[in-house]
């Protein structure tokens, strides 16, 4: 589904990703871990199409058989890419319901489907709200406006549920959540796992992976994947901490 080759990206001339390779198949859950500043969030932004990052000519990303790098962000979303933001923006004056209806209809339009009218959309929204257990009042509140940190993250998961992407990237969705909020968010994600849908779960903390169990774990450091493995790799990291990476890195350099 997703094939990343030699991904190099920089911002304002500062290299952040220095050659990332990995691939994701339908139904898989990949966790990406790493210390602060290692390039985790940059990877998410580049995948979603944030033009603030400059991607090297040598890099290639294929998503569902299409070349992703020349594709504008909105087309990636229409194709089935979803990013749950680390810091979702607040949009005053636009309700969740209005925003999501616009998003869903853009996607339907791009796929040659009829737009949903208000009634059909309301039905869809209510069903998804029930599924991931969010308060129905969310629909009429302005997008993230005045939301608590936990509410914002839940709102991202609600959008995920409504937009039904093929690939969902969760960028530190767990950061700053208390255990109850974390449970709600991860239960939501787990209920959205299907054989057709893949997840890339970016996290700083191993705790999230107790709730969302990954098939693969990748450790990213200084813009490279330095280690990949199964879910037990997360536990190893938990035990040894990220300092272990830094030591390994120095050892590699001196070797």
């Amino acid at each position: 589904m997703l094939e990343i080759k030699n991904l190099k990206a920089s911002v304002d001339g500062n290299p952040i990703l220095n050659g990332i390779d990995f691939s994701v198949k339908a139904g898989e859950v990949h966790a990406i871990m790493g210390p602060n500043g290692s390039g985790k969030s940059t990877l998410a932004s580049v995948l979603a199409g944030n033009e603030a990052y400059e991607v090297s000519e040598e890099s290639s990303i294929e998503f569902l058989g299409e070349d992703l790098l020349d594709m504008p962000a909105e087309e990636r979303a229409r194709l089935g890419m979803f990013l749950a933001f680390q810091y979702p923006v607040e949009i005053k004056g636009i309700t969740n319901s209005y925003f999501l209806k616009a998003a869903v209809n853009e996607i339907r339009q791009s796929r040659g489907m009829d737009e949903l009218d208000q009634m059909d959309f309301n039905e869809l929204l209510k069903e998804k709200m029930d599924q991931i257990n969010v308060d129905l009042a969310f629909a009429d509140r302005d997008v993230n406006f005045g939301f608590s940190g936990g509410e914002k993250k839940r709102n991202e998961i609600l959008q995920l549920a409504v937009m039904e992407p093929r690939l969902a990237i969760l960028d530190e969705t767990d950061s700053g959540l208390d255990i109850d909020a974390l449970r709600i968010v991860s239960d939501g994600v787990n209920s959205l796992r299907t054989p057709n849908r893949a997840f890339i779960v970016i996290t700083h903390y191993q705790r999230l992976l107790d709730h969302i169990v990954p098939d693969f774990v990748h450790v990213i450091y200084k813009g490279r994947i330095v280690k990949s493995g199964g879910k037990e790799l997360a536990l190893e990291l938990e035990e040894k901490g990220y300092d272990w990476l830094k030591e390994t890195d120095q050892a590699t350099v001196s070797a």
Partner: peptide, 21 residues
């Protein structure tokens, strides 16, 4: 960018924001 990441192009996003304002 938030709008675009949800499939809504820039022109529509600006229209929606202006309308809301």
């Amino acid at each position: 960018f938030y709008f675009r990441s949800r499939g809504i192009d820039e022109k529509t996003a600006r229209g929606m924001l202006t309308y809301a304002f």
